[in-house]
């Protein structure tokens, strides 16, 4: 994310964004980029409007009328108009995140990079931010980094899975589900069987059903008297792909 957002130079290799090499064309990339980092702050004494105006000026949006219209539009879109004159220092985490998203969109970026945008938010704010991202995704390329599968389901057309710097999967969501199709099982077992089953199979979920456990596993084959094949979801696919030693590309 830092390399793509031109903040860190690659130690090897490169990345090309809209024909611009991140090693040599940083200024050009910054002009077409919107970036919402995972860990970011805002100047607490500035209001939401002032914060966006400051950021818009940093983007060299010189025309005052166009700048004001852009900011007002984004404030309305982020549902922040009512609080635009309040210092952001008093904002909740979700409101700050929406200001962060607005600042990333000021220059109408071709590429919007958002890093863990819903981390640490309460469910209501998480849904709101996720909906905004889904809405924005029709207008531009969004590169979203997240550990939350719900975020991916809501927003992503294409998914890449990185593990320890290695790309485990690149493709669309149906393709990702296809990697684990026919390999997801639900085992109805007694609690004392749990450790043994965990040793044999890759667990992707666990539910209690009375005195029994419903253990969800991903495996090519399962040898158990009370097992049935079930439809995979993205969490199953994610855990399966993270386990696989080789990358699966489509």
């Amino acid at each position: 994310m830092s390399i793509l957002s031109t903040l860190v130079d690659p130690t090897s290799g490169t990345a090309i964004i809209d024909g611009n090499d991140v090693r040599h064309k940083k200024h050009e990339i910054r002009q077409l980029l919107g970036f919402l980092p995972q860990d970011f702050g805002l100047y607490p004494v500035l209001t939401a409007y002032e914060t966006l105006d400051y950021m818009a000026l940093l983007c060299s949006l010189h025309d005052p009328i166009a700048r004001r219209e852009r900011i007002e539009g984004l404030l309305a879109r982020m549902n922040l108009t009512a609080v635009k004159d309040r210092p952001v220092g008093g904002f909740s985490g979700g409101m700050r995140q929406r200001v962060g998203l607005a600042q990333a969109l000021l220059n109408s970026p071709k590429l919007l990079i958002v890093d863990e945008p819903t981390a640490g938010l309460d469910p209501e704010e998480r849904i709101r931010v996720r909906s905004l991202l889904a809405e924005l995704s029709g207008e531009r390329v969004i590169l979203l980094s997240t550990h939350l599968i719900e975020d991916v389901q809501a927003v992503a057309d294409r998914v890449g899975i990185l593990h320890k710097g290695r790309l485990r999967y690149v493709g669309d969501i149906p393709g990702m589900l296809a990697t684990v199709q026919g390999k997801v099982w639900e085992i109805e077992a007694r609690p004392e069987e749990l450790n043994e089953l965990r040793g044999k199979y890759l667990e992707t979920g666990l539910l209690r059903a009375g005195n029994l456990l419903k253990i969800r596993v991903a495996a090519d084959r399962v040898d158990h008297p009370k097992v049935r094949s079930i439809e995979p979801n993205l969490e199953d696919a994610y855990i399966w792909l993270m386990r696989e030693p080789e990358a699966t590309a489509s």
Binding site: L7, L33, L36, P37, D39, G41, L42, L58, N107
Partner: peptide, 18 residues
Amino acid sequence: ATRTRVIVQSRPQRSETL
């Protein structure tokens, strides 16, 4: 200190201006 470095530095603005 305010963790604003990333969003400021990723802007297309001259470093000397900043």
